[in-house]
Design a protein around this nucleic acid. Structure first.
Lengths: 233, 233
DNA sequence: ATTATTAGCGTCAGAATGACGATAAGGCGT
DNA sequence: ACGCCTTATCGTCATTCTGACGCTAATAAT
């Protein structure tokens, strides 16, 4: 950190977004089709350059809005990690700061912007093949793993749900993100007994069929104590 | 991610290191005295520019070696977070990728390099005052919080210990990093009963006084199941 | 009304944890 | 050699948390 003269290479800095949602019984990520080389025609994570005088978080929020047109309040965004291998972009040295966003099932990506077409795609499909541009498969993998951990230690599973949701809807989120079945009764006990995890709205719904279920909002808790761990194996 | 032309500002990228160790009953961080403006004379986290054709992790490892002269094997290094507020460096736009390193109590920083003098300083002192350059107080705070969490969910407390250590030495690490007292008997039960947390060496030592204690090495576990949580409050 | 379906409560056994007693095995002073 | 101090390590017991699973409640469809 001693000299700022030009003998050190300046590099381009981008933000890339791992935007996850739960749709059609699958954990899905937002991907855009690349219109130019390299990786023309391949899927890529949405993202773009950090502008001058723009903070990283700010850039991520801007890209997210451009790409999805969602109201900022309803989406959880956090920094994921930074990727800067010299060869990750064949054109030039590019360091990218990846952000993880957890969103409820949104209408449809509002596209409209640069990216030809943006769409939700199951992460299992994206990670199974080799179709993602650059090192985006690695970034996506890290994002998915982070999301899985978040469900254990934080109440952020609710970020995948609508503003108001039932315990069963929240449980489906857990089951789909973790890829494991959970006992409905034990899950119900855990989330309702954990302080500040859920906040009852007083209303009920029958949209899941059967007996009416209470509707909840996200509680004020930041962390889960104790956590809700997957697999005791 | 569509055009790489020059209409986007290129920025300088640095790595900064939060190197933590446990010394003299306190959690300490490695800091260097700044020799030039801005913040001349203030303490700063060690760090430096990422060279061309150098990966981020690689740059962090290089800086760590330059600053401490330690054998790479004995130190745990992981990416912490990236900081890039437009105003964080008054001279120019600088994005820094912070790394967290957990080290055993090393002889003394080998200084020798650029940084005038490097030394260990208790994090409580560093965070109490306002003496850290740039946004390094925020970075350090994040690093300390990450370290505290790591102790809960991973066996990395051992990264603060020598190659071979006793249960009591490991417990002291927890107590100092968390700033809380732990019951020696319950701690002993937890760490010895958790699969692959510790690997017995067969040897014993009396360096802590009293009855000889078994020596252990870090086990192969990556995570703790179930975790070792602080405060049940 | 009957049935299907989901919500939500209750029970019980096993695991994990916190509090803490008791014993083991060294060093040390006398 | 002997007792004492210190720390290591094991054990007990009550409490809490979890997994497995039975049972009743409340609605929609028939």
């Amino acid at each position: 950190m001693e000299h700022l003269q030009g003998h050190v290479g300046k590099v381009a800095v981008t933000v890339d977004l791992v935007v996850l949602t739960v749709r059609d019984e699958a954990l899905c990520a937002l991907v855009v089709r690349r219109g130019i080389e390299p990786f023309r025609g391949a899927w890529a994570l949405p993202g773009g350059f950090v502008l001058e005088d723009e903070g990283l978080e700010e850039a991520a929020a801007r890209e997210l809005a451009e790409e999805t047109g969602l109201r900022p309040g309803s989406v959880h965004v956090e920094q994921l990690a930074t990727y800067g291998s010299p060869g990750r972009d064949p054109r030039a040295r590019v360091v990218t700061v990846a952000y993880l966003a957890l969103a409820p099932d949104l209408p449809v990506p509002a596209a409209g912007s640069d990216a030809a077409d943006a769409q939700w795609c199951p992460v299992d499909d994206l990670l199974a093949g080799d179709g993602l541009a650059f090192d985006h498969a690695e970034i996506l993998r890290d994002g998915v793993e982070r999301a899985r951990s978040k469900l254990e230690y934080s109440p952020l599973g609710a970020a995948f749900c609508a503003e108001e949701f039932t315990v069963a809807e929240l449980r489906r989120v857990y089951e789909i993100v973790w890829g494991a079945r959970l006992d409905p009764r034990n899950f119900h006990r855990k989330v309702t007994k954990t302080e500040a995890f859920l906040e009852p709205t007083g209303a009920t719904t029958t949209r899941d069929g059967g007996r009416p279920a209470q509707l909840f909002r996200r509680g004020s808790a930041e962390h889960l104590h104790p956590p809700l761990l997957r697999r005791t194996t």
